[in-house]
Amino acid sequence: MRTERSNVLKVSDLHVQVQTKDGASTLVQDINFELEKGKVLGLVGESGSGKTVTSMSILQLLDRKTTTIEGSITLQGRELNGLDDKEIREIRGKDIAFIMQNPMNSFTPVFTIGNQFIETIRSHTSLNKKQAKELAIDAMQNVNLPDPAKLLKSFPFQLSGGMLQRVMIAMAACLHPSVIIADEPTTALDVHNQLQVLRHLDKIRAEYGTAILLISHDLGVISEMADDVVVMQHGRIVETANVFELFDNPQHEYTKKLLNARLILNHEEPITYML
């Protein structure tokens, strides 16, 4: 079904410009990275550094009238940049799943969870409604959601943020995509849910060999999850390194600044020993 190339997603020379009243303005430039099967690539940078623009341009979600995307984005050898709406829609959700920062805003409030979940499954597969429902329940059980059948009948606003984010992960994972783009998946959640969501993401990675592009400004999330890290500033990549290398021996000034901005708990023993 899927080719066994180690590079699932390759972004080269990505350059995104937006047309404004005052002429073209560059959002990101010279973006190069590769995403390997079963690996987690962390994308770090402060707000406004171009992290989300990069992920949106991979999925061609930016407004084509006002933005121009140059460069090449290949998913298993297939060029994504410039695909028309119909073709890219087949890829979104199936081959590349997208987990957004704010789970509350990512669902339509007027339809039930089940409605939206089953629609996603059915638009990408030939399953009938009953089979799709079974698949949905199965996927929700995998992320430890209690009583999935009941949840499918509830509306998004009836669920807490942490639960909705898990529903979104279940939706993202149930079609076994080759890439998951997780844009700040835990930022809106409290500490306890944060670790839970990361656990589920990692479980999906381990089970299906999904590659994850993990976008976060939280170096805690990055240090828990990432294999390699790309550091962005002002729309450019300033450093790419293995996560251990990056934390032990940061090269770029900006990376050092980010690492210094971490809030460190000053007490005797490292926190993780207390688990």
């Binding site: 500490v191 944060q194 670790l195 828990e224 990432a226 934390f247 708990l265 926190i271 993780t272």
Partner: peptide, 10 residues
């Protein structure tokens, strides 16, 4: 549930 400060402590 505090996230690690360094990948060594994940």
């Amino acid at each position: 549930s505090i996230l690690a400060e360094h990948p060594r402590f994940r």
